[in-house]
Simulated assay, not measured.
Amino acid sequence: MGNITALYEQVYRSLKNEILDGIYKPGDRIPSEKELTDSFKISRITSKKALEKLVEEGIVYRQQGKGTFVSQYIEVNKISPTTSYRKPLFGLIVTNFDDSYSSKLISSIEIASEEQCLIILKQSFGLPEKEEKIIKEFLEFGVDGMIIYPAQAEHFSSEILKMVVNKFPFVLIDRSFKGVAATAISTDNVHAAKLGINYLFELGMKKSVFCHPKL
């Protein structure tokens, strides 16, 4: 995921380069969210995030009911097209914080993200409706991507499908949904089971018993 440039980032850079090249001068109105949506064939959320990033950097400003304009007092020659003023912000959704798997997962992600990005952590308690609400909140807050441990193993929420359609960057943990082109990371359960059985045999056990919630 780290090698993929988010769509909003591409739109942001395109607009920033046009401002640097003088195509849009101080005081000029730049394309609106709708115009960017139509021009780049992207979602309204994506175009909104691109404009918000330009506003955050002081490159443009917004006037209610009029549009978005290039800042009057901006020193264009001092702006770098690749300048970033904040670390990437990712939303992490897990079912709960209590079990050892989730705890280790959260700890590993926190260690891997240190000094590289910021993480917002929420738990869905295994409730699909809670998961959908959190995803909406993350999108409205403007996260750059999400890491999701889905509430359900076999069914995905409509919000996950929307992110697939809008090509919003996210990764599913330990889940993959048939027919949904979403990036997923999971353990190799078959290989893990073989390692576990071999370990038991090495300890001298002659018989083994499997416990599974669906058996």
Rank of each mutant, 00 (worst) to 15 (best):
P213M: 11
I30Y: 01
V165I: 15
E137D: 13
G58R: 02
L215K: 14
V180Q: 05
S208I: 15
M205R: 14
G145R: 05
E18Q: 15
A153T: 07
D99Y: 00
S39P: 03
P213D: 08
V180G: 01
V55W: 00
V165T: 14
I79K: 02
A182F: 03
E202M: 08
I30N: 00
S102N: 12
T183P: 10
I4A: 12
P31M: 10
S71T: 03
T83E: 15
Y199M: 14
Y85T: 13
K49T: 07
E52G: 12
M1L: 13
L121C: 07
F97P: 06
R29H: 06
K130N: 09
S32N: 01
Y149D: 13
D98P: 00
R175I: 09
G67D: 03
G145E: 07
S176P: 01
N166P: 02
I93G: 04
A181L: 13
P31T: 11
N166S: 10
F40W: 12
G91C: 03
I135S: 04
Q63N: 02
L203P: 08
S108H: 05
I119F: 10
T68Q: 06
E114A: 14
P128E: 04
E129P: 01
S176K: 12
Y73C: 06
L121M: 12
I173F: 03
I147C: 10
V143C: 00
K34D: 13
T187I: 10
F210H: 13
N77T: 12
S124F: 00
E137C: 04
I109D: 03
A151N: 01
S100M: 13
R62Q: 10
I160R: 02
P26N: 01
M1T: 11
K41M: 13
V76L: 08
E137N: 12
L89W: 04
T95S: 06
V55I: 14
V164W: 05
L203Q: 15
I106S: 05
Y12F: 15
I106Q: 07
F170H: 00
A151T: 06
A6P: 10
T187D: 07
